[in-house]
């Protein structure tokens, strides 16, 4: 986990929970259990309007990926974009991190949630992102 320094940190997205035990959280439909990372007015699966706050499991499996070599200016390439499925059955999109060679990414590989500092803004605030590293 980053933070030996005193820099203020913000999560890259609202569903990333920082602190001593960083993890992802989802809005979970109280009627059918469908999970969403964004704010929803009603459940896209069942139409229910009640949501609770749920923790998403850290352990996951790589279900789909692409090694991106061409991206908009300012985005470092290549990187491994991934769709993972967590142990509790939630699909998450992020990057596979911690691979020396992107071509070693393999469908079905076990990965683990991790966080890292991905940038600093002009006020010195650090942005913390999440990714999945080989387990």
């Amino acid at each position: 986990m980053p933070d030996e320094t005193s820099a203020e940190q913000v999560p890259i997205v609202g569903y990333l929970q920082l602190g001593d035990d960083p993890h992802l959280r989802a809005n979970e439909c109280t009627a059918c259990g469908a999970r969403y990372f964004d704010r929803r007015n009603a459940c896209a699966k069942c139409g229910g309007t009640g949501f609770s706050d749920a923790r998403v499991a850290d352990a996951a499996v790589l279900k789909a990926y692409s090694i991106v070599h061409n991206a908009a200016p300012g985005i470092p390439v290549p990187y491994v974009s991934a769709i993972v499925e967590t142990e509790d059955g939630t699909s998450v999109r992020s990057n596979v991190v911690g691979l020396d060679d992107p071509m070693t990414a393999e469908l079905g590989m076990r990965v683990e949630f991790t966080t890292y500092v991905c940038g600093t803004d002009d006020d010195g605030t650090e942005c913390v992102a999440f990714g999945y590293a080989p387990a």
Partner: peptide
């Protein structure tokens, strides 16, 4: 988030 949390391309 493009390029950090996966790709949008």
């Amino acid at each position: 988030i493009d390029g950090i949390l996966g790709t949008e391309t």
